[in-house]
Design a protein around this nucleic acid. Structure first.
Lengths: 211, 211
DNA sequence: TCAAAAGTGTTGTTGATACACCCATGA
DNA sequence: TCATGGGTGTATCAACAACACTTTTGA
């Protein structure tokens, strides 16, 4: 009988900060060896019979200290199988994404660096983040659950621009992004307008998910 | 300590049959319970420290009876985590694709139904095939390793049309597919022409990977 | 009234689709 | 010489990017 490989689920937890106007990644210092004290993605060993999303929720709750109600959506990314990625021995790491609602976050040991500027992490988590970033950027405006999870039920054009810039690296023209959103089924421009940004300027329109 | 979930690697093994002009999927009858005798995707339990592609090669070799040299390329698809997918208890299934060179296939217990018409399979393998088919179609002409693995180092426009039809479900216009291939870096039209098809017609040009 | 930022309209480019027509083969 | 089917050229349409110009706010 072949001995089986332990499976860990590592989560890229994303949160949009409207004040900093960027997407943040949830990381937390490790409590135990190896890499005790070093920052790492929240991760747990997959329990027998546990589903991947359940494990991801558990990781976000236990490692980032976020209540489960704060998790708005989650999904699969890829699997990392380098045998040497964990010094304790070969383990598989299945990467998942999760989005959280900043309003429902209680304290916790987590730090939230901008996704565009993540400090060095434990294990091969730098590589995981690097490899998964394009996958996340690709999901925006394509995967409704992901986009809605990140932006919330209601958001402004300005916020949509900020999120897109954080994920893809460059800022689209407001006009063009507006047209992308108008074409998106399940999303509609409301009649309302939000307050203008601190520096002034025309107040952006508010968008809402219809379904 | 949490008990860990066994991980199996299940492989969608693809092969292009130039005579039947379709892409075939490798399946084999199961030797043991559960589902003994029923057709299934080749799959093995992932060994400790084993890489996913190694396990995939092992599955194709042991379950389909194909020599490892016949495998031309392989890669990841998705993970299936329904706890009830195996009656023996919860297991994870990581789906991989592999392409084989029909010329290098020795006998073996495998059957090769067309990918478009796969008979009912054991476990949740029907669902795996159904879910992964769009992923495979999406890789064609995008993932060079996949496309080259399936078509071989040298192929004709007619074969490219056949493969595209098998994977996507409809046959592109030869002119348009020709332009897609011309834009593809690493692929070039040669000066040669293949023999015409049995029914006659203009002999198709031969394409070759340059890198 | 000026700066800032969203929104409207317009234009050019690119990719995909579709098709008319030309070419090369087997029967 | 006809049916078959690949190859060339062209038209059409949608998506996207880019930008001039207008509108609405705060200072």
């Amino acid at each position: 009988m072949i001995e089986s490989t332990p499976v860990s689920v590592d989560v890229l937890t994303l949160r949009f900060d409207p004040t900093a106007r960027t997407v943040l990644l949830g990381v937390a210092p490790r409590a135990f060896e190896p890499f005790a004290g070093a920052l790492a993605l929240p991760g747990v060993l997959l329990g027998k019979g546990e589903r991947l999303r359940e494990a991801a929720r558990r990781a976000v709750r236990d490692k980032l200290g976020a209540p489960e109600e704060a998790i708005t959506a989650s999904g699969q990314l890829t699997t990392f199988d380098e045998p040497s990625r964990d010094p304790r021995g070969p383990t598989l790491s299945i990467a998942l994404w999760a989005t959280v609602d900043p309003a429902r976050l209680a304290g916790g040991a987590a730090t939230w660096p901008p996704l565009a500027d993540v400090p060095p992490l434990a294990f091969d988590h730098d590589r995981i983040v690097a490899d998964c970033r394009p996958l996340l950027a690709d999901r925006l405006w394509r995967d409704v659950a992901f986009t809605a999870g990140l932006l919330g039920r209601e958001f402004t054009t300005a916020q949509a621009l900020d999120v897109t810039e954080s994920l893809t690296g460059d800022r689209p023209y407001p006009a063009n992004l507006g047209r992308i959103m108008e074409r998106l089924p399940g999303l509609a421009r409301t009649a309302q307008h939000a307050a203008a940004l601190p520096k002034g300027g025309r107040p952006p329109s508010v968008w809402r998910w219809t379904s």
